[in-house]
Design a protein around this nucleic acid. Structure first.
Lengths: 227, 227
DNA sequence: GCGTATTCTTAGAAGATTTTTAGAAAGTTG
DNA sequence: CAACTTTCTAAAAATCTTCTAAGAATACGC
């Protein structure tokens, strides 16, 4: 169970973090709002709970909270603050916080509230699924599917078919494909693209799908329907 | 949005219920524990939130709460009480309450806390017992079970399989796994992850389970079904 | 403090992917 | 149609990733 703890008062931070660690949580501490934003908005890794001070250097706590909710990061957030006025609490909760604890608080109460919050499941992460003609691509698992057939692509194959499926009607030149798949500064030759087009066409045969990669002679390639 | 409001102080009950109704909630009031039990455990009708006084005639508030959770009724519960001592709060939260508000409170804060609770889908998960595909993990005893076979895992094995079972469909990179299992500032190398993946696969063979850890070449690992 | 269990490191083998190369096939143009 | 350009295909080389095993280091229980 992983907790992000954002608190600029180093002394308080240390004391609380210490006790949370004793309970078996993994704690990442940060001490200003800018740093916290970076941690909180990184959705590759996720936290199970975020403990957020309201008044922080550089970027304010509520701004961080709002940014998280705007990016649909569902991680439960408990605001820890000295601002105990009614309006402050309502503000905090309505910005998307799940709980609001006024300083000074007992760490034991904080622990109980963390337990209460983590009893409920975090929402499901939305997956990136692309569709074109009769094909479906799950980029996370690199699985290309057509009806009841499916294959696992290699990284480069997946990157390449992604370019096509994102713009199924566009003719993509070799130069563009190299740029999109291999990046700006690469020594890759056109022949390599041809090769991967060949690989993808073999995949299509395995899948027995109707989708094809059409050659536009002298211009490039384009996704299309074979019938 | 439907709220069950259990409070034996008729005067307080009326005032609060009045204001909740003004906000558009449908309120069912009851005034003793026995009556409340009947309402709360009747799963034909369901409530979006239950507001529960702790000290009630006939049956005590925590008893009602425990009974609800025992019957796996996941409705969010806010305890409203005069008992504001630390131990009381912890007791209440650990019995399955989602929030704990000490009297006297502002109705506006109660409203904000109700909004916070009802933003999330209501479903309680037992974080100690995880399930994915044909596997069950009891984290407390570190026992991994499949049908009638089971093994006791080491700490790290258990931590690692936990990450997978919490998000069974996600591809986890080595970096993420290190981050989740070993924490932020660690010198652990990727090879160590590979090793524990190897250990877990051996465990799976012992269990003769269908679940596997799939390698997504160049990306990481992902839980899956072998058939 | 000793023995056992667990965790971490290392390193080479095995395996998969990516890139290069080269010749055959196909399309275009005068 | 002949010369040329472009595209297709296959195979091998190079690179990178993953698997496995064995041993060293560390933590834990008696």
């Amino acid at each position: 169970m992983r907790i992000l703890f954002v608190e600029d008062d180093r002394q308080l931070s240390e004391v609380v973090a210490e006790q949370l660690k004793k309970e078996g949580y993994i704690i990442d501490c940060c001490y200003d709002g800018e740093e916290a934003l970076g941690y909180a908005l990184n959705d590759t890794y996720y936290y199970d709970v975020v403990l957020l001070d309201r008044m922080l250097p550089i970027v304010d706590g509520l701004t961080i909270l709002k940014a998280m909710r705007q990016k649909h990061i569902p991680t439960p957030v408990i605001i820890l603050t000295g601002l105990g006025a009614l309006e402050d609490k309502i503000d905090g909760l309505d910005c998307g916080a799940d709980d609001y604890l006024v300083k000074p608080f007992h760490v034991k109460e904080l622990l109980a509230r963390i337990r209460a919050l983590t009893r409920r499941p975090a929402e499901i992460v939305n997956k990136e699924i692309l569709t074109a003609y009769d094909l479906t691509l799950d980029r996370e698992h690199r699985r290309l599917t057509c009806k009841d057939h499916s294959v696992i692509l290699t990284q480069k194959e997946s990157d390449l078919i992604t370019v096509f499926m994102e713009m199924p009607d566009k003719t993509h030149s070799r130069g563009e494909l190299i740029w999109r798949v291999w990046g700006e500064n690469t020594e890759i030759e056109n022949g390599n693209v041809d090769n991967y087009i060949h690989f993808l066409r073999k995949r299509f045969r395995e899948l027995k799908c109707r989708t094809t990669i059409k050659t536009i002679y002298g211009a490039g390639f384009c996704l299309g329907d074979s019938q």
